[in-house]
Computed example of a mutant assay.
Amino acid sequence: MDLDFTDEQRDFAAAVADFCKREQWVTHPHDQTVYEKMAALGWLGVTESCLVDTCLFLEQTAYGMAPIGGFATSAIVAGAVRRFGSEQQQATVCGGLADGRTFSIAMSEPEAGSDVAALACRATPGADGTWVINGQKTWCSNAHFADAILLVARTSGSPGDHDGLTMLLVPTGTPGLRISGIDTMGGREVNDLYFTDCVVPADAVVGAIGQGWRQLMAGLNLERLILAALMLGTAQRAFDDALAYIRERKQFGRPIGTFQVQRHRIADLATEIECCRLLVYRVAALADREPGRVLARESSMAKLKTTEVAKEVALAGMQMMGGYGYATEYDMERHVRATLVSTIYGGTSEIQRDIIGKTYGL
């Protein structure tokens, strides 16, 4: 398969990289001003075109450490709405993303993480076709600044059933919804959501009632490739930061990068990153070629391999930099935090391995 990028794609990636080099920003998960600048350039609508373009954008912004943390969840929500939403929902979400609005998705619960079928947060029919939501969601990224949340709630059946789940679009200002930040290593990037008699209209349903599980499965290519491309950019940045350090840092009278142990470590990490890059863009190209095909094995491989390699690169970078790798004066400690959690969210590495194994009939 020919994975050569077009001239337009190369120019696009170069433009994003140049933007990240020229702009000055304080390290923060999400800066709405920077986000809106990218929207004005037409870049936030890249998910409407093709997945290869999306991965190029994500790799370059992650490498440039652009503070647009809300983009990934917004793109995942937009993908679901584009496939299953009404014209009005598509205008609100897909058009809103292109204009610089942010969205979040809520699936995990205190007793349901990897086991999505165990979801218990329930939406029941109310008056005049409305839905009344009660329950709790947790680990909800970016909900504290999102315009709306794509909620996966149970509308029928019991926890343990894949059937009976429904997607609902809930504006964050809806009465009965309380958003509470969770303190983590990266600050307050994730949230608990508490729904208490939270009422949404009938047209809040995205797609078909009771078909939320199947709709989620249809979006696996996009979600896993988004996470893989982000960590590809982060891995490359961590690698380049470590390489620059060991070229300059001297011990025993010479740069530490000239010692064989460091040369071999760099060689191994560079090879692993290149393997990830080929895998990510191969899967993106396959998904673009066959948009309706769910690449469960391939997308899981991309997410698994890239997040694990990114974690390996960041931890190796910290080790190579010694105490400076742990200091906030340098970016390496941030790379470590970002990559450690990447093997957990969006489906843990263990779950990805299980999925891949099942595709071989095991």
Rank of each mutant, 00 (worst) to 15 (best):
G173Q: 06
P175D: 04
V206E: 03
V199A: 13
R178C: 09
D192G: 03
G210L: 05
M185P: 03
I209E: 13
G164Q: 13
L169D: 00
G173E: 06
D203K: 08
R214W: 13
G176I: 01
Q211T: 01
V170N: 01
Q211E: 14
V200A: 11
A204S: 15
T172S: 09
M185G: 02
I209L: 14
S180D: 10
P171L: 14
I209W: 07
R178L: 12
G181F: 08
V206C: 04
I182Y: 00
D163A: 12
P201Y: 05
T166V: 15
L165G: 02
T184L: 09
T184A: 08
G212T: 09
P171H: 10
V170R: 03
M217P: 00
G164N: 12
T166P: 14
R178S: 15
I179F: 05
G207C: 07
R214F: 09
D183Q: 15
A208F: 14
V200H: 05
G212S: 12
M217N: 11
A204V: 03
L177F: 13
G181D: 11
V200S: 06
A204N: 03
T184R: 12
R214L: 13
V206R: 02
T174Y: 02
T174G: 04
N191S: 15
R188F: 11
F195L: 08
L177M: 14
V205A: 08
L165Y: 02
C198K: 10
G173C: 06
G207H: 05
I179N: 03
I209R: 13
Y194L: 12
C198R: 11
Q215T: 01
A208P: 13
W213S: 09
L165A: 01
Y194K: 11
V205E: 01
I179P: 03
R178H: 11
L193I: 00
T166R: 10
G207F: 10
D192L: 08
